[in-house]
Design a protein around this nucleic acid. Sequence first.
DNA 1: TAATGGTAGGGGAGGAAAAAGTCTACATAT
DNA 2: TAGTGATATGTAGACTTATTCCTCCCCTAC
Length: 890
Amino acid sequence: MTLPSYKDSMVSVDCQVLDVDYVLLQEKPVVRIFGKTRDSQTVCAFYDQFSPFFYVDREDAIEMLKEEPQVQSVQKIKRKLVMGYQQERAVWKVTLQNPAKTPEVRQRVLDAGFKVYEADILFKYRYMSDHGVKGMDWVRIEGGTTNTNTVRSKIMLSAKSVEPIVCYDDVPLRVLSFDIECVATKEGTVPEAKYDPVVMISLVFSEPFQGSDSLVLATRPGAGVHPCADEKELLEEFNRFINEYDPDIITGFNINNFDLPYVFERMAKCGVRAVFGRCTTKQALSKKIGITYRNSVTGRVIADVFQLVKKDFMLKRYSLNAVSEDLLGEQKEDVKHSEIGKYYRGDAAQFEKLASYCRKDSLLALDLLLKKKLLDKYIALSKVSGILLQDSLSGGETTRIENFLLREFNRKGFIFPLKPQDKTIGNRESRQRKELGGGFVIEPVRELHSNVAVLDFKSMYPSIILSYNICPTTLIIGDEKIEGALKPPGTANFVPPEVRKGIIPGILKTLLDDRGKVKKKLRKIQDDNLYRVLYAKQWALKIMANAFYGYLGYARAVIYNLDIANAITASGRESIKFTAKTVQEKYGLPVVYGDTDSVFVKMKDEDFDKIEQKATEICTDINTQLPGVMELEFEKIFKRFLPLAKKRYAAWKFEHTEDGWKESIETKGIETVRRDWCPLVGEVVAEVLEILLKEQDIKKAVTYVKGIVIDLNEGRIPINKLIVTKTMTKAGKSYKGIQPHVELVKKMEARSPGEAPGVGDRIPYVIVRGSQLVSHRAEDPVYIQEHGLPVDATYYIENQMLPPLERIFDVLGVDRMELLGNGRQMGLLDILKKNKKPQGPREIPAAEFNGFMCKKCSAFFEQVPLSGACTCGGALLFSSPKGPGEVLVR
DNA sequence: TAATGGTAGGGGAGGAAAAAGTCTACATAT
DNA sequence: TAGTGATATGTAGACTTATTCCTCCCCTAC
């Protein structure tokens, strides 16, 4: 790279920050800011007036620092330490030259026994924090225009200054969605990047590119396809088209863990450099982290729709097809994974079909990203916290909070300690498990209640932090006596705001006030785009405000303090207990439930307005007795409230809106909202609750249940309503026990290696008839249909349908006998008894015989394998569509 | 060359442990 | 009255069969 040369004209450019990094120029760092102007021009600004630095605690470190060639200067300054209320002290600011060398110097200083501060902050964030530059926020760059061929950007500036400016809206981002297809060289295997080439790549554009909205590259000519001579050319063209289209966002479905790593490996194999970022020299990076990858491309942002949907939507399944169906009402094109090779090598029509399939996948990913506005939240979070959009998308809460805190603490003259080391983390975790208490849950009064008012604390933990001035910087160390000290329950005491205002309370106040302002503004906004931006902003403000408590009690946090975390939760427990006690003793109203920050009060009135009035009155009274700014407020009315257990209830809810009282059914924790039950259970439980809560007609509900059970028993329920899904949270072998979804994955792995689901996937399964453990009878629904395996109706009645329903009816005083006993038709108990029978030996009538089933693993065979036994070694049984018999095949 | 906010709580499935039946051999009483 | 066999009853130990308890796992509430 050449030194950016000043031209005489000085310009001022406003842009939104997309990415920041640095490069070395003659051993000195140059910060690069990639952005986009209001009229969608790309900008890259270079800033070379900033050097890395850290702090050291003692003067005698200077001696050894003199020996370090990296050290440019050491300067004595005054700073405050974060942990504990203490005054300013002297520290020595050590300025270095090359950011990449900081870890080495840091280590040597640490080894010499000194304390070091802020020596592990990424250089780009060091720069952004010190200059008030935030990801996706607006800056005004002033400087001379310059030119270099090292970056791809319309405007290039050698920046004299970069200042944050206030601007709410967002520049439209240009998005590229892509999808690759590869073909296994060996028939019947799954493609592996090590051996098998990429044969097709589809690109779909959010803004028309060269008059088209999509493009398919392939290593074979065909209708509507951009042909390439070989894979190398295909990959080069991929690079070229990305750079010509110049997207801000690169998206696709599961690109982070499949398409991108695959492409990178193929590029390496083919000798193609992966330079499709806005830097012409830096290659795109793909880091393997355990079994997942983290990818980055300079100047652009990678957004994987699969990961975003998984984080933001609670769905039962996350395949592209399932997600598209649920969120867009659309389907993928019908090409099986295993048939891609066949279609690619097939006739013109088949090849065309493959191209269309490939294009559709990219299109669906793009549609999901845009129509579901998947980026809005992350853009807002970036703006609030300051981190880059890429990190907002792929990082967790810690990154955001830490970046945010660093800025605020630095501004007030505090310096950060280093990130904790593994040993410290271990110690913290083991102590924490024993000592950190959480919220208090009031034992529910298990019966059907009427007219229950729900009162809850507004932003409970943030308001506790504000009320007690809770902050590491106000924590009183040891037994120091401070006038007017604030003492929440527990061991931690804090200086009052008159002595020192806590940084975190300050931040929270701003966040909450800002949110109030944004919400107010939101009511008047007509413009759709601005509404979206502001809505996301108020959401992000809420998320950030609520995250501080969790962060303080997180063992890997830089600013961690168990006593402080405990002070917050203990205070919460005290407040809810006090509230419940007051409501019961002073007002004589029973508290029938409550969880962490809410109290459910059984009211005497029937009329909603009267209930609200009385509840509000109670809140006002209690608020005068609560510490600081803590505020209890009336939230909603449950006309009927049916608590089943702690954290499990159903209610007929009425909320006061502008248009009067709005009703709905609310269920918490029970099977209707859980994803690890089959859909049938969810539907039936929902229907039963609706009947019970609104009509209070137990008989009707029971009759309804009986009908469903009979349908189930007689095989009239479609199989897709019986599919249970569970997440595979770790590798199969690291499970200690036996579990249905894990066993099924093992089975699928044995049937077709490579195609089975893996860690992190949700596994759908149905329980089939048989005599082994339930877990061994979990089967792939597709496999069941292909092989005509019998569903275990008894399992679905006894283990899926009945337990949740019994729990509900039990609270209403309907016992199992009443639920199952004789009605006009055959009672359910009789059905169950009858059902139990076929577990024993069963003869298979010749007419029904359709194959053989393994006694051990339930694998199905149309013909007896040559070995005479199942592949697992188990014996084979004659079988019919109704299930296996007991006669062994010998 | 890894990054990861918190605790409380319900409930299913499996498996181990404890408890309750069942069987058997033997002793004793009638 | 003592000895004998049939029968009933009691009891300890071996073995089998439900129950109960605990752990792991998943997912949710807040």
